[in-house]
Simulated scan of single mutants.
Amino acid sequence: MRNALSYTIVFVCLTIPATAVRAQEPFVAVHDFHITEGGVLPPVGAACSIDVKGARAALTILDDQWTAKGGNYLISGRVLQHKGDSQEWRGMFDAIKGYEVCSAELNYANMSISGESTFNVGIRRAGLMFYAVVPKHRPERHWINATFAIRYVPAGTADHYDCQADGSHPWLCKGQNCSPLTRW
């Protein structure tokens, strides 16, 4: 039988340390993913939109091992592959020590993905993998501006919860079209 979930909401922009989450409790963390080419970085996601400067300041004090930030990108996860002038980005939103990824849901109402941009994710218990493409050197600006939630459960307990399958894809987005669509 599956356990009913009770969990803590952790907004990445509030910079709550992982130790603040009590051991053995499932919880949800809200993540930001922003890349733009040919313009300025869009405002940080809905969870942090009240204080964009504060959210960006919080991300600057997070350990660089867990975040990626630059002039045209702000990602509350690690970039594993992006070379120079490449349009492609690959990376991971790591599971916190002692936990594994259970599921992920896209904040579709506040998401903006332009034209030919792509944003796909895959569930791995060790972390949520991402693949993104943001076209470069085009006359118009292209971007991905997304906020989403990752549900974490204690390591080794995914079978006890209503988790998405390891290797599944909570969303595959090309522009504003996402399939399958998991949303909050």
Rank of each mutant, 00 (worst) to 15 (best):
P135D: 07
M129H: 09
E100S: 11
I75H: 04
A104R: 02
D159L: 04
D159G: 09
N110I: 02
Q65T: 12
I150A: 02
G39R: 12
A158D: 07
G127Q: 08
P154V: 06
S117L: 03
R124E: 10
G77H: 07
S112I: 06
A126G: 02
V79Q: 12
E25S: 11
A46D: 13
G70D: 15
S179K: 12
T67A: 04
S117H: 03
E25C: 10
V28W: 05
G71R: 13
W143F: 13
Y131T: 12
T19L: 09
P135L: 04
V30G: 08
E140W: 10
H31P: 06
A4R: 06
I75F: 10
P135S: 06
D85G: 14
E100G: 04
K69L: 11
P170Q: 11
G70Y: 05
A23C: 01
P180T: 05
T60Q: 11
G70V: 06
R2P: 15
Y73N: 06
V52S: 12
A57F: 11
Y99P: 01
I113C: 09
Y99K: 00
T157A: 14
Y161H: 08
T8Q: 14
I144C: 02
P180R: 06
D63V: 07
A132L: 02
R138P: 01
W184V: 12
L172I: 15
A149P: 00
I150H: 02
I144Q: 08
K53N: 13
G167S: 06
H137M: 06
S86M: 01
I50G: 10
E116A: 14
E25Q: 15
G54V: 10
A109T: 12
F11N: 15
G167H: 10
C163H: 11
R151V: 13
A146H: 07
S112F: 11
P154Q: 01
P17L: 01
V12W: 08
C102K: 08
N177Q: 08
T182N: 15
G115H: 14
T15N: 15
C163R: 13
K97M: 09
V153Q: 08
R22S: 10
G115W: 04
S112L: 15
A23P: 06
P42K: 04
V52H: 06
N72W: 10
A126K: 08
N110E: 13
T60P: 02
W184P: 13
M129S: 09
R124T: 12
S103T: 04
I75T: 09
I150P: 07
E116F: 04
I144H: 00
R124W: 06
G156M: 07
C173E: 02
F27L: 08
I16E: 13
V44F: 10
V10K: 13
D166M: 05
C13G: 09
V40K: 13
T8G: 04
F27K: 03
C173F: 04
S103P: 02
D64W: 03
V10P: 01
D94Q: 05
P135V: 06
L181D: 06
I144P: 03
Q176W: 08
W89L: 03
V10Y: 02
G38L: 11
S114W: 04
L41I: 14
Y73H: 15
A23N: 07
W184C: 03
